[in-house]
Design a protein around this nucleic acid. Structure first.
Lengths: 342, 342
DNA sequence: TTGAAAGCGCTAACAC
DNA sequence: GTGTTAGCGCTTTCAA
């Protein structure tokens, strides 16, 4: 094939329909279709169909300065927390003609910077940011450039961007109450790294819930990351170093909880017989772990959808204001929590 | 802010550097930098840096008819099989200046069509297709339009597109051998729907492996989908309808295997005591299931990387040929397989 | 080594 | 209701 690539342009359609290309443009765009004679419009549609015409989004975007794309910045698609969020975003974008451009940062500032430049070069109309340490330069620059953005699960520091998140405080409180009712008195919270805004929120909520619950003493340790590996290591350390073993653990998220389960197993401890474990997020496989994980369900798909909704609204209004949307969460009790050992 | 959005253009840089925009273009592109005086180039780079200039990819793409984007078509990002593949693709694309545009089809032909049109409208330079029933019209049209594509884990039917896949046959054979060595004689294969090319490949490999293994009798049933739910249902049906219960099951993939585990549990059967189970793919969670899943490890990240590599090569050469890359797989033995019951 | 000019494919003012 | 014209921001001949 010589020069085969989707070459049919608006001029091709125009000459086949016997009209000017401006008319084709009007006929093919919903917003301007009423300006053109119904018969002509039909002829144009027919010609476009026959030629397999697909408008060139780059040309359109260049003209309208509107790329109809949204940049989505996440740490790592491979983390099971993010795929539902991304799908939630896309579910909202797709029927509205927008496409998501995905950028994984692996929590590296260098990659964040490069990704952001790549997205800005593609002239994304807005950003959904679920990545961690982005507070700093990159996001600040984006804000100064007037880029619309919505934060997801991580606040924007001092930048006045909207934030969509789960209600961490009530989730943690529900977990503490659940454990207290099962008779647990020594509860450990394995928090995520301090540079994630959720880590602090959850740890604070944990301390508050413990101190307002009679007889419960809460301790907080920090994991180096929100991963299975980090959860495993942190729990190993707790089990070897501490004299008074906690009877229950509330993990910073489900991955950390899975790591805790592994650690317990390798130390010959049973869950929930010796130690109860609660996760956070309710990733898809929480119900298939061993034992099935009691966890705080966070509506991840909806978080994505909501973030996309708020972003498109800002784009349409050409203005945005700070705003925090806290979606309700709920404790899902499964097999990893049980009565405190006697 | 009035009119704030990334407005600095090549002309702004040109006037600040006191040169013509053509010179800026040459100075800023690696391929043409040698055409311009080193001093001038430095001045241009400085001006660009100072203004925070990021070239407009749409304008460039319009001019060069090269969008530097790749369309990635998958059924559902939420299926844990796909995130590693997508990351593998992006890992290869990103350092080369390409961006992936993701499209979820939910295995619907209507959505596939719409997604493909959206991608073609954005003038993607190529396609990685990991979606199912795409054989039909949409992909054929793309091929006729001269669009480059690489299939991933699903062949393209009669279309001469390259295919990247795992070595299904050796994986299944290894699983059968492993089970035979454990003394299993009645092995069941729960295949995926027939319209996925991998389903047939694996089922055929299963039959071949069984008939070439002394004393082993293999049966194949088909699940309605490659999902936990479908695996659960299919196994339920097997357990209630069949008189001679298989002592081992090789599932079409890990999700189906997890469904089988659920079914066994709900029927009061133990794994691997009563029935051994083998999965396929080795999704990340396979090691944390109950029991940990013996499964065929497929290098999903590498499959993505390889597909991207082949695609960019085709784009660069402006030509592509059919070709099948079969990546090696390996059996990972965990807790879900054990000796056949006496 | 640099500048001038044309044009990628589209939409939006402005005519008629 | 439709055609004409201009121009979005870039790269790439062609001249100088």
């Amino acid at each position: 094939m010589i020069d085969p690539l989707h070459r049919v342009t608006i001029d091709d359609v125009a000459s086949r329909a016997g009209v000017h290309k401006a008319t084709v443009s009007r006929a093919l765009n919903a917003r301007t279709r009423h300006q053109v004679n119904a018969e002509t419009a039909a002829r144009v549609a027919e010609a476009a169909e026959a030629l397999g015409y697909v408008p060139n989004a780059m040309a359109r975007g260049l003209r309208t300065s509107n790329s109809m794309t949204i940049g989505v910045i996440i740490p790592d698609l491979t983390n099971p927390f993010f795929p539902p969020i991304v799908r939630g975003i896309e579910n909202f974008l797709q029927p509205r003609g927008y496409t998501a451009l995905l950028a994984n940062t692996d929590d590296s500032e260098v990659i964040e910077r490069a990704s952001l430049d790549s997205l800005l070069g593609r002239r994304v109309d807005g950003l959904v940011v679920a990545s961690g340490s982005l507070y700093s330069s990159a996001l600040t620059d984006a804000h100064e450039a007037g880029v619309f953005a919505v934060m997801l699960n991580r606040d924007a520091g001092s930048l006045p961007y909207p934030l969509v998140t789960g209600n961490d405080a009530t989730g943690i409180a529900a977990a503490v109450t659940h454990l207290a009712e099962l008779g647990h008195r020594r509860i450990l919270h394995i928090a995520g790294p301090a540079d994630f805004s959720t880590s602090g929120t959850r740890a604070d909520a944990f301390r508050a819930a413990c101190s307002s619950t009679k007889g419960v003493s809460g301790t907080v340790v920090e994991a180096s990351a929100l991963s299975v590996e980090a959860g495993n290591q942190t729990m190993d350390k707790v089990l070897t170093e501490r004299r008074a073993r906690p009877t229950a653990v509330i993990a910073g998220n489900d991955l950390v909880a899975l790591g805790v389960l592994r650690s317990l197993r390798s130390h010959g401890l049973s869950c929930p017989g010796d130690v109860s474990v609660v996760g956070f997020n309710d990733i898809e496989f929480a119900q298939d772990s061993n034992p099935p994980l009691t966890t705080v369900h966070v509506p991840m798909l909806e978080m994505g959808t909501e973030a996309a909704r708020i972003l498109l609204e800002a784009i349409e209004n050409r203005a945005q204001e700070p705003l925090t949307v806290r979606l309700p969460v709920s404790l899902i009790v499964r097999g990893s929590t049980g009565p405190a050992p006697a």
